[in-house]
Write a protein that binds this DNA or RNA. Structure first.
Lengths: 221, 221, 221, 221
DNA sequence: AATGAATGAGCATTCATTCAT
DNA sequence: GATGAATGAATGCTCATTCAT
């Protein structure tokens, strides 16, 4: 018979407290939202898909979040912590040379690609999807990117001043290239999921980073 | 039964032949569609925006194209010609070394970034937006990327065999990095439109290309 | 390349006068409209289909007719002549008994089913499709049906008075049954085009007509 | 991003359980859809009319049904039960003669004309409107008609073999005439809603059935 | 804690109709 | 005599959001 059939809420997660259940449901919703936003895009993902994958209904999303946009913002906050803040913290303890720091950065990111692939991709993809929109999401993403950029830029500039990195290209643009390579590698990986060997790709990326940044040993072009 | 409609037909494009008018309108529609698809995404652009920007109405789009998707396919055909085929043709006449060829490729692409920014971006952005969808668009994009990749991969492999490019990273992954850097640079430029100096960015990209690919002259890392 | 491709008007109907060409084009349009209205219905047939089948374009329809509705009205005028007026004329010269007249009517209609199938069906189908609409078409069809009905009713009533037809059912309802059987047979034929033998069906219809109308020869039910 | 919508939710169907509300709304929608499809045709009825008559909105139709077509299919399933299956069941228990069975069929249908006029008409009208279309609806209707036809045909053939019905016309065509008369009578009633006396019409129909089918008692025509 | 009913704005698409050429 | 360009109203359908339960 007709009508959208929703799964009957059978007594699940028995033996858990309300608070635990709350957390579980929220986590399920966030995880499926993240996965779907990454694979289909924000706009092309609807609340039925998100809640369905978490074995809940649309209404549940509104119980936990104010709106679809809030779900994304929540995800982006997680991203900020994992992808940006922890990367910065990790680089800060590395050293002593700036080359060491850059390698640490590359390694941290490469590792994220394995442990938190969707978080990394979410930031990149949403930055593109929300480019011309304005609102909280746009603002948040812009700030995140700005933070990331200025961190790398500082690193690159310091490396240049220390004579570790080449100075024949301006720091701002060199830093932009580093980020570009980073994002590009993740996107290419995303696009071809399966047909590329992750570790090899990371090695190639690191090689490009280092060789491209290092002081050239003889005139090129 | 809809009654007779009394619109005041503003005499537009008067004094032009049908053929000219056709070409003009189609070009206007394609140009505004391209611009909008790039800046807002395919799904977030509606036909009213596309036609409105060309001073036409939704109906006109359907006079020239079978559907919204057909508009995009038409644009992608142009992209294939400009961004992929001509790049390949351009590289083929360059030489004699593979390094020369790679530089020619980088220069051609860098130039496109100035003369055909939207065409380049369209391909990259649509490849991401249509990732999980299937249909004609997905197929077309996949083929385009495959062509581009296999071309670069061949170039990189030949350069490796000729001893010009480093061989400590597999050709496939090295080629992927080249494309990743390319796409990444364009996206970063797109994201920050205005705040980056194009020529400088291109120089940085070229440097990364060449230094990263060239045979290392002394042990690194 | 895009855009709806229309057949190029190659020099056709050469060696004919304008008037002849006019007539030819109008006839072509009317014939394809009739065929399409019958097979798909009025609303589901669009002007592109009508004109396309006549190797002309939408605009041509508007050159010859004021509107889509006018095309149908023109067709219905033809139907009036062939299906109703000529049937009446034909019956009037038949005789001498009312049974003879009824047989003449049945034969005329049966013959029409072969020579002018679409005209007969058009009236029946449009009477159903335009039932709740109002306007010229509705009016025209209503008048046609009224004419047909009152003609048959008179015939039946006269037959009853002459003692040829049974009088245990009121003339109005008996006449309605005759028309119902007539329309029903044509529709069933239409629905199953192909799987029914026309001549056999006509014989069955005639049998039902006559037996059902004739004075019963012994008590029934 | 659509902002929060401030509709004043008129508290409708308050005090009813979800299940009741569901049933009520679905029934209202189906009933108005049936009425409108019969009086205006499927294609000429829009979802606003259907939902409006049930004091709901377009969206509600999509809450209960997957598409406009699904609404029709649901209605046709009801028709199958009431108009075809129950008629067959009813005839099967009638007897002992085949004439008795035919009379039972006629009575059942005549009664339906009063209690379920729209259901009977829906099948007939949709069989015409969907003639050239293909898809689920067409398939369903074709199967229904086939079932009906083969049932009547068997009945007629058995009556012929038993010597109750005339054998000078082939069973297939005789059966077709019975259905034709049936459909024709309903359509004529539909077309002239109001100006025909139902019971009289039914008597006329039954008379035509019986007289036309019965073995002739003396040479006719 | 979560569901199910219902809404309404937005959107791609179809199509009769107009009009300059 | 007829075409091609363009319009705008209509319509099926999607989806974020609201709210009573």
């Amino acid at each position: 018979m007709p009508g959208p059939i929703q799964t009957v809420q059978n007594p699940k997660r028995r033996g858990t407290t309300k608070a635990e259940q709350r957390q579980t449901s929220m986590d399920l919703l966030l995880t499926s939202a993240r996965r779907l936003f990454v694979s289909q895009g924000y706009r092309s993902t609807n609340l039925e898909q998100i809640s369905g994958e978490a074995k809940l209904t649309k209404g549940a999303v509104y119980f936990y979040f104010r709106s679809k946009e809030t779900v994304l913002l929540e995800l982006l906050k997680q991203v900020q912590d994992i992808v940006v803040d922890q990367a910065i913290a990790c680089v800060e303890v590395a050293g002593p040379t700036f080359t060491d720091k850059l390698v640490a950065y590359a390694h941290y990111q490469a590792n994220l690609g394995i442990t938190h692939r969707d978080e990394v991709l979410l930031l990149i993809l949403m930055s593109l999807e929300f480019k011309e929109r304005d609102g909280e999401v746009q603002d948040f993403i812009t700030k995140l990117y700005r933070k990331q950029r200025s961190f790398i830029e500082t690193l690159v500039r310091q490396g240049q001043e220390a004579g570790e990195f080449r100075s024949d290209v301006q720091g701002r643009e060199l830093a932009a290239s580093v980020l570009a390579l980073h994002d590009g590698v993740f996107l290419e990986w995303f696009r071809r999921s399966g047909s590329l060997k992750g570790p090899e790709l990371v090695r190639a990326m690191r090689t490009l980073f280092l060789c491209g940044l290092s002081v050239p040993h003889e005139p090129k072009i």
